[in-house]
Amino acid sequence: MDESMKDLDRLAVLDPARNREPSAEEWARAEAFVDRVVAGSPAVSGSPARSGSPARSGSPAVSGLWDRRRWLVVGAAAAAVGAVAAFGVPALVPGAAEKAVASWTALPAARSGAEVLPQAKICAGNDVGGGASPTVNPSDVLLAEQRGEATLLVLRKSNGVVVECLGVGDDQLASMSLTEGTPKVPAGTINLETMSSLGEGDTMWSNIVGLAGDGITGVEVRLDNGKVVQASVDNGWWAAWWPGPEGGEADALTVTVTAGDKTTSYRPSDLP
């Protein structure tokens, strides 16, 4: 600590990691992890980073680690993939992810609650968010979009929990709870509830979802690789998904929000 900061010494008693040293078991696990990392893939060479400008995490493997807690894989293959997930490797219903990724479109088609009622019933029927809903009405669907063969839903369950589901036909890829009640953000603004990625290799995909205040007319996700994804906006929510790892990385995209004639761009870390 700088000499001039000595007045902060007294704060040391509040430090939750004061005198914390890794145990022998923690060291052993950490070193085993290092062994796996160096055995698994080569380091990437490059020019030294500018001081004060940390690089983004940019590997699919990082994304896989990052998000394994969020999405729950549901549906017919849940038991099988659950066994895989116990090792921390996200998995999807075989075949469905490939179909979703292969048919993906940057521009979504909006769907009404009535149009996606079969998928909504499947989404509401899983245990994500505290339990299955006994009944589902079109009005429970807060946002629904179609990209190729995949349907993305933001749905309010009968217990008040809002969940997100992604599926292909009757096959659900994944589902996760987002929030409870009816949260709102100020007019003309958005927030970021979450973004994440799931899967591996060619079938890795990312999602991003948040609340949208009144007056928001469009949200666009611009990936750092140049790909542009139009998000869906409906009933106070905005959402998008795309093939790739960026949702599991730190600020690997920009979110551009349009409210009337005003357009504002944010890095995810700048969004509330």
């Binding site: 992890f33 160096v38 893939s41 990437v44 030294p48 980073a49 590997s59």
Partner: peptide
Amino acid sequence: STVFLTAWRRLGEL
């Protein structure tokens, strides 16, 4: 672990 994996993949930039 996530941080060290990132560091390995971007070792040349550290």
